[in-house]
Nucleic acid binder design. Sequence first.
DNA 1: CTGAAAGCGCTTACAG
DNA 2: CTGAAAGCGCTTACAG
Lengths: 350, 350
Amino acid sequence: MTEEINTGRTVGPRATMKDVAALAGVSLKTVSRVVNNESTVNAELATRVRSAAAQLHYQPNISASALRRLDGRSSTIAVLLEDLSNPFSATIYRSVEEVAIGRGVVVIGGSFDEDPERELTLTAAMARHRVDGFIIAPASRDHGYLAREQRAGTPFVFVDRPPVNMEADCVLSDSRDGVTRATRHLLRSGHRRIGFLGDLTTIYTAEERVAGFRDAMREAGLPIDPHLVHLDLRTAPAAEQVVGRLLDSANPPTAIFAGQNLVLMGALRAIRSRHLQDRIAVVGFDDLIMADLLEPAITVVAQNPERIAHEAATLLFRRIDGDTSPTRQIVVTSELVIRGSGEIPASVRD
Amino acid sequence: MTEEINTGRTVGPRATMKDVAALAGVSLKTVSRVVNNESTVNAELATRVRSAAAQLHYQPNISASALRRLDGRSSTIAVLLEDLSNPFSATIYRSVEEVAIGRGVVVIGGSFDEDPERELTLTAAMARHRVDGFIIAPASRDHGYLAREQRAGTPFVFVDRPPVNMEADCVLSDSRDGVTRATRHLLRSGHRRIGFLGDLTTIYTAEERVAGFRDAMREAGLPIDPHLVHLDLRTAPAAEQVVGRLLDSANPPTAIFAGQNLVLMGALRAIRSRHLQDRIAVVGFDDLIMADLLEPAITVVAQNPERIAHEAATLLFRRIDGDTSPTRQIVVTSELVIRGSGEIPASVRD
DNA sequence: CTGAAAGCGCTTACAG
DNA sequence: CTGAAAGCGCTTACAG
């Protein structure tokens, strides 16, 4: 717009409502009315105000208005997830952003990294910022401490993990059922020795996933060899080592269920390095880019983070708008995406 | 903490400094001093204030304090990138979060989706929220309109793309040079017909990448067959179609450089479906998870988003702290990660 | 060291 | 329809 070169060092004033009022020759209150599209301001006055505002590049101060406003809305929500750099969290954040932007609301993000201390730090920071609501995938297993913030009028929607010691809306994946279905799928191909690799047992969804596995085995009347179940795996190298040992053992599994992305990567590396990729069936939890380009392509239980986020955001804004109906729990179904790795029959190895 | 079940519907009051003062039996100002660790408040008074604050679960209202504060700091920064659900943007966001959290600053994110209109909308929203600074990967190609906000005292750090018609700090990857090095690498393996696939030419980095390709070809004294250069590709299907045509043509390329992740995926699909994965060399731009698990594993030019983010955040907070030194441009080097797909020699096909 | 008054940028509650 | 005064929760600027 302007042709002049700006060094960024001249600190200019920021126009306030008062400045706009002075330039338009009206009262502060009239400017406020125009800015907020309130009542019917005289058309000519409104035009004068609008052109003064434009001329001064006036931007209302949202937090100043929130301060006095009865509803106290900051036009800000918090989206606090496990790790905004992982695809699942990032997709949820982005999908919430889409809903929020449509309402002129801005999204503050945060990552807990499975650390309950960090959860306390971040939720407190958000409270100091007076966010209008929370979408949260908690790291802690007791959320009673959030009830106070909730009682102060800030709604919470839990995603991926349900609230404990607190009543709040919640949007979950059917992880347990998803894993049960995937395990049945492996069983149908004749697998009896299935290795299960799970994430930290402190994580709700990790527990659900192993429970889903156990459900399917029990349902089939099959015993679970405890040597084949490995939990508390977080990293690819850890999983690679565990799977390596399993494959090298006297009685190896014929299939592997990897309860998480990084663990899946480790498992695949162990399998590849032993050239067993066409002999050991593999199913992963959570879809990943390029899964279809591997050989064999990877069969996964895919969650639907866009859908989870959309439901959560919709619920949250409904609460922000004053909905006081009983809390709801929404379950978003996951899908078994068949690509090849999960369809390798047990007999190939036997 | 509390054993009572909270229905989330009782709206309780939120304690203010005034409440804390009343409970502690001191003045508002004394509470303010204690909360802000100002001067030396009498130890006994300070203790009384702190316990009153704890008892009331007092959380200071950050925006109210910012309103009156001379520096007007909202303890909020904006991180506006291409798309927070893609790994590059998500990693930058997350790494900025790490620096910000250490300063008690909270991060508002936003995605432009290469839409200049959306850039205007989001930057204006951030201005209304009076963020303390911006980290921005702009979609537009003229940033003069931001100079006003900058002049009002809000620092900007550009990432991935340099400011135009505005002077501001900037952290870039050496995309052009990175692609030149990758192209030389292909040339060394005897490739002469290299297909280049680029993203939208409106994107600065897309331009840089094709320029880097041309640099290397020129340097080698080789002509560029215009049939082998395809720009404005954004999606995997589009790239798959283009690469399919190239491969099926009378004089196909012996190598492909894919200027972006999705385009790489499309290229790989076209190559796979023709069983040419061991005959056509492929190099991608931007690393991706699982790249090492493909066969052959994918050679890429890897950027360093963590480093970019860390430099940007450090610069930004320095500006927020009042640094008025000349603007800086930092270039973060990218790395050619050799994994196999880029080392297939031209002779295999010939 | 402590506190009463004024004011940040806005909206509310009330007059005219 | 328009505006002057008060007040949101806090910090500043100033007294004591």
